[in-house]
Design a protein around this nucleic acid. Structure first.
Length: 821
DNA sequence: TCCTCCCGCCAAGCA
DNA sequence: TGCTTGGCGGGAGGA
């Protein structure tokens, strides 16, 4: 371990002290010397305590100490300090040069080894760095962003980065070179130079238009971050800012060097190219100046990395600042198959569909090999979604420790591609045709081995995702997957008629532990589609007379490894019971860690299942109904088939859970029953409406896309019709939610800000007394009047509320014009 | 004078 | 509401 640089180090000192092989693997201790102007007085002691308590104060104080010499500020300081803050203070202030980003970067780099041991990860805590380097966070971000662009660091969590050193540099440079070539930066540079030669840079519109068209002809487009497999891009910002961030700019800048011959790039040319990519129409001076500023920032960091060196090029117009590449030579790519660096647009440079497909697939599903790639532009949405998820992970206060690439890829079942599954499936959904739907239904019904792959033409570049989707992909609804050790079953419900959702976006596709053994599937009236229910228990759980044994065996491949389930269980159990949504989100965000995933359907775990833990479900062949034979009692679960708001999709909410008693909807975990156009269910009174479980309700609404994630509707939504309960409530649940009497039907409308529509929900809480009744109820409940193969009709009430015919809730397209009630 | 780039405002996003 | 992150441009230091 090497002692870090002293704060007062001059640039020369920094340069001499920075040794490439120094290996400070941990954050070095804070330098002991105190600024001469800030002696250790009671006041300063107090200040220290205060600043220690608040980063903001700390930062402010640092700012003051470093640069604030105004008397106004000084008056607030200790008299002794103030006494010393005169000339002496100013003299003690580092000069502008000493505060340069390049020097700061040297200091920063000196803290970490160029090639850290893979076994020992160096973590970067921004707070520590800013404190120890006596610098504002903002400056550290500048450095880190550039380093991130070279995959020398990666964001781990809030305030926390991982130091990779230069291990990834060759790969990164090669990838950048490839992307640069594909983006035809050489031509752009030549074009700009040619123009400069012919004319001075002229912001006249004509010239700009030419330029714009030229850039357009070169098929430039917004480029996003070039990633490396295993070095995940975890930008904090998931919005558009990311795409003009310092990271991206830095990569582009490096690309220019790598594709140029000689490897000298002037700031002006670089700025023009970067501007040209971003906003061709705004090729104004201010933009140019801003780009130049940023390029200086980047160049300072790259210079500190000894990748570039400042030079000057002399042209007709005089001396111009430029930079020369002094980094490692990047060999040309001779084997494209080995280097999957693609333009983020992916589309223009890669013309062949297969290539494009493969590349995009690889971009989504990086193999373990040393492949470089960028993301296909068409997948930016997916990437955003993924990054959004990831960001949530990293931003969470309890962000998990980053999983290294090796860990990532050594997960028993899922590569890190799983983390992208929701987005992938979402993408798939958007492009789905009916044929695909049928195929997916078959897929869902078939064994894992028989999972049909979508037609390439329908889902270009995504067949791979499907191919690698978990075997559970083929799980049909509902499926009980017991947890072998705990006896807690996992279940997934998927309404047969919604088989197309099997591969569609399913925010809640992860499994939740379902501590319930008995589940009844919902039979669809669509004869073509059969529910399938399986149970699988651990060997120590399986009863000898398990009627579903064979089926379970068939489904066994769908079970993810025990470790996955266990982790899921543990994680889930560790979370508060009453925080379903958070749990779901949290788990969802942890996809890449350990969870078992199901492509569709989701669960609200039973919060109370203390009696039974064995699933003994018999598959009612073709009917897909699992009758319950156990005497175990448990709370029902709710399942909702998630669907995209972008399409008019049917949504079935079929996850009724049948205990030996009956089918029922948990009072504390609402089952959103399909809307009945004219509620055939009992309804009469509007008083004393039972409150649906807030968490379950929100869970449902969020997952069917009616409210954004994170938005919570009150526990008592707008209940419009509250049918009278036919039975007295005798189920109690510990979640604290209002008890709901069985048989009670709650009908309420909900205005979805996302869809800008009103939706009418009917919720029924059932608890038939006979075991067989639930099936009938279920069937009735989900029977579509039109009969099999008939799509339920959507009806709009006069008030604009979207109603569906029996059994299905239709979610309208976004922007559907319905009255907001 | 102009290059260089520090500095910090402020917005976005998230918890 | 507070914090993190980072885009952005004013304007100052230095050559």
């Amino acid at each position: 371990l090497k002692t870090p640089l002293k704060q007062v180090a001059t640039s020369q000192l920094v340069l001499t002290e920075r040794q490439p092989d120094c290996q400070p693997l941990t954050t070095p201790p804070k330098p002991k010397e105190t600024p001469p102007a800030d002696p250790w007085t009671p006041t300063s002691n107090l200040k220290m305590l205060i600043s220690a308590a608040s980063p903001e104060i700390r930062s402010r104080e640092q700012r003051r100490q470093l640069s604030d010499s105004s008397s106004e500020v000084l008056q607030t300081k200790h008299c002794l300090q103030e006494h010393l803050l005169g000339d002496e203070y100013e003299k003690s202030q580092p000069s502008r040069k000493e505060k340069s980003l390049g020097l700061l970067c040297h200091k920063f780099l000196a803290r970490y080894p160029d090639y850290p041991s893979p076994s020992q990860k160096s973590y970067i805590c921004l707070d520590e760095v800013t404190e120890e380097l006596h610098v504002e966070r903002r400056r550290i971000y500048d450095i880190v962003n550039v380093l991130e662009s070279l995959h020398m660091v990666s964001r781990l969590a809030r305030n926390r980065y991982v130091w990779h050193g230069r291990h990834n540099l060759p790969q990164t440079l090669q990838a950048l070179k490839k992307v640069g070539e594909e983006n035809k930066y050489i031509q752009q540079i030549q074009m700009i130079k040619k123009r400069e030669y012919e004319h001075e840079f002229d912001p006249d519109s004509e010239r700009n238009e030419e330029m714009a068209s030229s850039f357009g002809s070169s098929e430039q487009s917004e480029m996003s971050f070039v990633e490396l497999p295993g070095v995940e891009f975890r930008a904090a910002s998931v919005n558009g800012r990311k795409y003009k961030s310092l990271r991206v700019m830095s990569q582009k800048f490096v690309m220019l060097f790598l594709v140029s011959t000689p490897q000298i790039v002037s700031l002006e040319v670089a700025a023009k190219i970067l501007i040209g990519e971003d906003q061709l129409e705004d090729l104004d001076k201010s933009k140019f100046k801003t780009k130049i500023r940023r390029l200086y920032d980047i160049a300072n960091v790259l210079s500190s990395l000894k990748l570039i060196k400042k030079v000057h090029v002399t042209e007709e117009r005089g001396r111009k600042p430029a930079f020369k590449w002094t980094g490692p030579e990047v060999l040309p790519n001779t084997q494209d198959t080995k280097l999957e660096a693609t333009s983020t647009t992916c589309s223009p440079p890669i013309s062949e569909s297969i290539t494009s497909k493969e590349q995009c697939s690889k971009a989504l599903f990086p193999s373990k090999g040393k492949q470089n790639f960028t993301r296909h532009s068409s997948l930016i949405k997916l990437v955003k979604s993924i990054e959004n998820d990831r960001r949530k992970i990293q931003s969470a206060p309890t962000s998990p420790v980053k999983i290294s690439a090796s860990t990532y890829q050594s997960l028993p079942v899922f590569p890190n591609t799983i983390a992208q599954f929701p987005a992938i499936t979402k993408q798939q959904l958007e492009g789905q045709s009916k044929t695909a739907e049928e195929m997916q239904m078959k897929c869902a019904l078939s064994s894992p081995e028989a999972v049909p792959k979508p037609e390439p033409s329908q889902q270009p570049a995504l067949s791979q995702p499907l191919g690698v989707c978990p075997a559970s992909h083929s799980s049909m609804s509902p499926v009980i997957l017991p947890h072998p050790q705990s006896g807690v079953s996992y279940a997934i419900y998927l309404h047969p008629s919604q088989a197309h959702t099997m591969t569609t976006y399913s925010p809640g596709f992860m499994l939740q532990p379902l501590p319930c053994a008995n589940v009844t599937g919902i039979k669809s009236n669509n004869s073509k589609i059969l529910s399938k229910i399986t149970t699988e228990e651990g060997d120590n759980q399986r009863g000898p007379d398990d009627p579903t044994k064979s089926l379970a065996a068939e489904e066994r491949p769908e079970m993810k490894s025990e470790t996955s389930s266990q982790r899921c269980l543990k994680r889930s159990q560790a979370l508060p019971e009453n925080n379903l949504i958070k749990r779901r989100k949290s788990d969802e965000e942890s996809l890449d860690t350990s969870l078992t995933f199901f492509p569709s359907g989701y669960l609200i775990p039973l919060t109370h299942c203390t009696h039974g833990n064995k699933a003994e479900c018999s598959t009612k062949e073709k009917a897909g109904v699992c009758s319950v034979q156990h005497t175990a009692y448990s709370s029902p679960i709710t399942g909702v088939i998630p669907m995209p708001a972008s399409e008019l999709k049917t949504v079935n909410i079929p996850a009724f859970h049948i205990t030996p008693l009956n089918i029922m909807l948990s009072p504390n975990s609402i089952a959103a029953a399909p809307v009945l156009s004219n509620s055939c269910l009992n309804s009469s009174s509007t008083s004393s409406a039972p409150n649906p479980s807030s968490s379950a309700l929100n869970f449902m609404l969020q997952h069917i896309g009616l409210i954004p994630a994170g938005v919570q509707v009150p526990a008592n939504p707008v209940l419009q019709h509250v049918p009278v309960s036919s039975q007295s409530e005798n189920i109690s649940h510990s979640s604290g939610s209002t008890n709901v009497q069985e048989g009670k039907v709650i009908e309420f409308t909900f205005y979805s800000p996302i869809n800008e529509s009103n939706f009418l929900f009917s919720l029924q809480f059932l608890q038939p007394k006979e075991p067989q009744e639930p099936q009938a109820i279920t069937e009735n409940f989900f029977r579509t009047p039109g009969g099999p193969n008939t799509e339920p009709a959507v009806s709009a009430n006069s008030d604009g509320t979207q109603r569906t015919s029996q059994g299905t809730l239709y979610i309208p397209q976004r922007k559907l014009e319905v009255s907001e009630d």
